[in-house]
Simulated scan of single mutants.
Amino acid sequence: MRFALDSSHEDFASSIDALLTKSDMPAVIRAWNSGDTGPGLKVWQRLAETGVNGLLIAEEHDGLGADAVDLVVAVEQLGRHAVPGPVVETVAVAPALLSAVAPERLAALAEGSLATVAATPHAPFAVDADAADLVLLVDGDTVSLGTAGEARNSVDQSRRLYPVTAAEQLGTVGFEAAFDLGALATAAQLQGLGRTLLDSTVEYAQQRKQFGRAIGSFQAIKHHLAEVAVALEMARPLLHGAALSVRDGSPTASRDVSAAQVACGDAAYLAARVALQVHGAIGYTQEHDLSLWLTKVRALVTAWGTPDVHRARVVASLESGAAS
């Protein structure tokens, strides 16, 4: 199995990175946090123009007809820049569901509409239903249009959570494939978030001085940052391997996705802890940009399946293989 990305993937990632770098994402996120979704929706429209929203949508519905590898490449960049909104739901889960039950709604997603999804028990609330054009509810194998209730707060201020009740039923679909895509995209987001936390912490450690020396020159700081770098690099092949398994319809796809989700979540959480330790308490204040990444990691670690759920899926798959 080949894990290295080819030049087309790298170019795609670079184009998304350049777009988001120019968008002043901390200002966009803070506006979203305050209820002003306008700047964020403009970013989403530009992302749609690059093809991000339509990655998993067939060309006949104005999408790119891409695969899980392209999804991971794109969503990792969205994670690096902490893009607000229902990222996983719009780019991964909703296209998978609508392709089966309401393909006529896919073109709107490809053109820049946002979608959010609630699916008990692993995603019981719909993220940012107030900013989404489409709210879906999955109950077992039944997919329905949903009506959002009263918002609930998340530790990440850019994620508002809404309970959803069913309205019009759209159809039935096996949910496992859509769930796997949600978990895979969440893992990619966490990988991107972890990378930004590491990069920003290294930069801070090179500038911040104590006792006349940059704190990055202290051995203890170096060791902590090295542990984060190793964790992120060890998680990356699991993430890419899971994307290949999903793309190829491997019988171990669900297990591989869960392994990637756990590894990327653990690495991102370690990156967040070390970033906060190196920056000190200022890193957790709302005035510091680092807090925007820290809180998103904390929220996403349990999104689309908790670590316990994904570890249990890995163990069950391995035990099943051993038994056979």
Rank of each mutant, 00 (worst) to 15 (best):
F211T: 07
G212W: 07
G212C: 01
G212Y: 09
G212V: 10
G212L: 14
G212M: 11
R213Q: 14
R213E: 14
R213I: 15
R213C: 11
A214S: 15
I215V: 15
I215L: 14
I215A: 13
G216H: 07
G216M: 13
G216A: 06
S217A: 15
F218E: 14
F218L: 14
F218R: 13
Q219Y: 10
Q219P: 06
Q219T: 15
Q219F: 07
A220K: 12
I221C: 11
I221G: 01
I221M: 05
I221D: 08
K222C: 06
K222E: 15
K222M: 13
H223L: 12
H223R: 12
H224N: 11
H224L: 14
H224Q: 15
H224G: 05
H224P: 06
L225S: 12
L225F: 10
L225Q: 13
L225G: 12
L225Y: 12
A226S: 14
A226K: 09
A226N: 14
E227H: 12
E227S: 14
E227I: 07
V228R: 07
V228I: 10
V228A: 05
V228L: 10
V228N: 10
A229E: 14
A229N: 13
V230M: 03
A231V: 00
L232H: 03
E233Q: 10
E233G: 07
M234E: 10
M234R: 12
M234S: 00
M234W: 08
M234K: 08
M234P: 00
A235T: 09
A235K: 08
R236W: 13
P237D: 06
P237N: 01
L238R: 15
L238K: 15
L239Y: 06
L239Q: 00
L239C: 01
H240L: 14
H240W: 07
H240S: 04
G241E: 02
G241Q: 09
A242D: 06
A242C: 01
A242H: 00
A243C: 04
A243N: 05
A243R: 04
A243E: 04
L244Q: 11
L244R: 13
L244A: 05
S245V: 03
S245N: 11
S245R: 09
V246N: 05
R247K: 13
R247D: 06
D248N: 15
D248S: 13
G249N: 06
G249T: 05
G249S: 00
G249M: 09
S250I: 10
S250R: 12
P251Q: 10
P251I: 09
P251Y: 01
P251H: 03
P251K: 06
T252D: 14
T252V: 05
T252K: 06
T252R: 08
A253T: 07
A253P: 10
A253N: 06
S254W: 00
S254T: 13
S254C: 07
S254H: 04
R255Y: 02
D256P: 03
D256I: 01
D256R: 08
D256L: 01
V257F: 02
V257N: 01
S258P: 04
S258Y: 04
S258G: 03
A259G: 14
A259C: 06
A260G: 04
A260F: 06
A260W: 13
A260M: 03
Q261C: 08
V262A: 03
A263S: 00
A263M: 02
A263Y: 00
A263L: 07
A263I: 00
C264L: 05
C264M: 02
G265R: 04
G265W: 00
G265Q: 02
D266L: 05
